[in-house]
Write a protein that binds this DNA or RNA. Structure first.
Length: 207
DNA sequence: CAATAGATCATCT
DNA sequence: GATGATCTATTGC
């Protein structure tokens, strides 16, 4: 049962306390929530947790730099950065202020503003392909580095929850596209969901 | 279907 | 100067 498009702006916005917990707890809890940017909205179906100094795959592992400053700041902010010189990734800052940690949003099921998303991603062949991957999702939702540091508890860019959502099983796997700390079970997806990003077979075999 | 190459640049060494 | 929390197109089987 999906929400009517008009129902989305009535949904409760997740507040700072939701994010002010360990990233490995926030990440699975974000599944099923709605990422909203103006008229565009999608249901989160895949996330990954990135931790602090002990997580060599996390940007925060080397401490505070100009880029990683927001990871050490207040929870509930956006951390947006450029990967591979081409694509941007959206993370939500977790953990209390002073402790680094974030959740990478990897895939969305498009819910509203779909025409707009299609316009931003003309290459997408299907609805399933519109936002099934971290780079695709930021393009489809119109999220850029302009949003880095933005407060997600208010304004045009928010995450919301819906009481009437169906329950679902959570699948836990290693994270994707990283070299270090590959074995840590910090990737969470809605089991069986068609909108989860695709992994190459090579990567699948590696685990 | 699977593997690989190329695009492209901010960030840190 | 090397290295990516990626995606797409193209090649090869």
């Amino acid at each position: 049962m999906k929400p009517a498009p008009g129902a989305i702006k009535e949904m409760e916005i997740l507040g700072e306390s939701f994010y002010s917990r360990p990233a490995a707890e926030v990440a699975p809890d974000l599944l099923g929530k709605f990422l909203v940017h103006g008229p565009a909205a999608g249901q989160i179906v895949e996330t990954e947790a990135y931790l602090g100094l002990d997580d060599l795959a996390a940007h925060a592992c080397r401490g505070v730099t100009p880029r990683t400053r927001v990871l050490f700041g207040r929870p509930g902010r956006a951390y947006v950065y450029l990967v591979y010189g081409m694509y941007e990734c959206l993370n939500l800052v977790a953990e209390p202020e002073g402790t680094p940690g974030c959740v990478l949003i990897r895939a969305l099921e498009p819910i509203s503003g779909i025409d707009e998303m299609r316009r931003r991603r003309p290459g997408a062949k299907s609805l399933e392909d519109l936002a099934a991957g971290p780079g695709k999702l930021t393009l489809a939702m119109g999220i850029t580095r302009r949003h880095n540091g933005r407060d997600l508890t208010k304004g045009a860019l928010t995450v919301r929850q819906w009481e009437s959502g169906e329950s679902f099983e959570i699948e836990i796997t290693p994270r994707i596209g990283i070299r270090l700390c590959r074995e840590l079970p910090l990737r969470f997806c809605v089991a069986g969901n068609r909108f989860v990003s695709r992994r190459s077979l090579a990567e699948r075999a590696r685990t």
